[in-house]
Simulated assay, not measured.
Amino acid sequence: MSDSTQGGGLARLVVALDDGYASYDQEEAVLAAEGARFALRPCKRDPKRALDAAREADVVLVRESPLPREVIEGLSRCKAIVRYGIGVDNIDQVAASERRIMVANVPDYGTDEVSSQAVALALAVSRRLWLHDREVREGRWSTGVLQPMFRLRGRTLGLVGFGRIARMTLEKFAGFGFARVLVNDPRAELPEGVERADIDTLCAESDVISLHAPFNAQTRHLINAERIARMKPTAILVNTARGGLVHTDALYDALAARRILGAGLDVFEQEPPGIHKLFSLDNVVVSNHMGWYSEEAMRDLQRKTAEEAARVLRGEAPLNWLNRW
């Protein structure tokens, strides 16, 4: 779909900078009710194209495309930028605040899906599914041990961050019989039986480590060579949050040397990652940042993003306003 012409005479404009959804009927309906026109103008992650597309927009909707300072400073009438999703590391919030442009996200969608992806990746690594799938597809059949596997019952689960997704991940892991659950999140209220731990202790004592922290300057490479070196030989690292939380080269070195059991990754430092050396290893399971997806989650996300834009057009603050002043 190209630039929508429904309500072409309307003065107010909401521009989406990334395509990829099958339909934008929800955005068009929600925004038309506010007397605004919706336009889809894909910029293919090019900041210059983003500025050309959004210069006159009252609200900008964005997925992956970067919105650095030079784009934000060129927006002539923008009141808000709304992220289709949770992470906002592609938006210069400092520049937005200086221009009094509100930045909002949609944190309450896809919780079920991402938590299921985290569990699925952990199980795929634990049960060596990639290795055995390849064996069968290549015509080999062996009931012997290809690589060691270990049961999860009686072991330790570590959760880095304890927001919506981490809490649901814990709920889904509850039936696997973990003896201990460690959480690294200094502000979260923890349920009974869950232990708060610093990140070094969590890395050293957990058998499954699932990352659910936001990505920012403080959490970049939170899982670095030193912390990976603390991990058990039975450790499985799962990342469904942001690729930059993990030092990728350090993880590769540990996996290649089989110093930890394996890793399940839905996110990468650079996306798309190209043909990365990690992909040559048989103790890594990967997916293409699709943990958020189901048909239901996608519709929820589009509707909630449009509703945030509608609030701004009505003169209200968005529900999930991040750079408050």
Rank of each mutant, 00 (worst) to 15 (best):
I165D: 02
A166Q: 10
R167A: 15
M168D: 15
M168N: 15
T169H: 13
L170M: 14
L170T: 02
L170F: 04
K172I: 11
K172D: 03
A174C: 08
F176R: 01
G177Q: 10
R180L: 10
R180H: 14
V181I: 14
V181M: 11
L182R: 04
L182Y: 03
V183N: 08
P186F: 13
R187A: 14
A188Y: 11
A188E: 05
P191T: 06
E195A: 11
E195P: 03
R196G: 07
R196Y: 11
T201C: 05
T201P: 00
T201I: 02
L202Q: 07
C203L: 09
C203F: 05
A204R: 15
A204V: 11
A204C: 12
S206E: 09
D207M: 00
D207R: 00
L211P: 01
A213G: 05
N216A: 09
N216H: 14
T219C: 08
T219D: 03
H221Y: 15
L222T: 06
I223A: 06
N224T: 02
A225V: 00
E226N: 12
R227A: 05
R227K: 13
I228D: 02
A229C: 07
A229E: 10
R230P: 05
R230F: 06
T234Y: 04
A235G: 08
A235E: 05
A235C: 07
L237T: 03
N239A: 05
A241G: 14
A241L: 12
G243T: 12
G244E: 01
V246E: 01
T248Y: 02
T248K: 02
D249T: 14
A254H: 01
A254N: 03
A257D: 14
I260K: 00
L261C: 10
G262Y: 02
A263L: 07
D266E: 10
D266Q: 08
D266A: 09
V267F: 14
V267L: 11
G274K: 09
H276D: 15
K277I: 11
F279R: 02
F279G: 06
F279V: 00
S280R: 12
S280A: 15
L281M: 12
D282T: 08
D282W: 06
V284H: 02
V285P: 01
V286T: 15
V286I: 15
V286K: 06
S287F: 01
S287G: 03
N288D: 14
N288I: 01
W292M: 09
W292C: 05
S294Y: 12
S294K: 09
E295I: 07
A297H: 08
M298D: 14
M298N: 14
L301A: 07
Q302T: 13
R303I: 04
T305N: 07
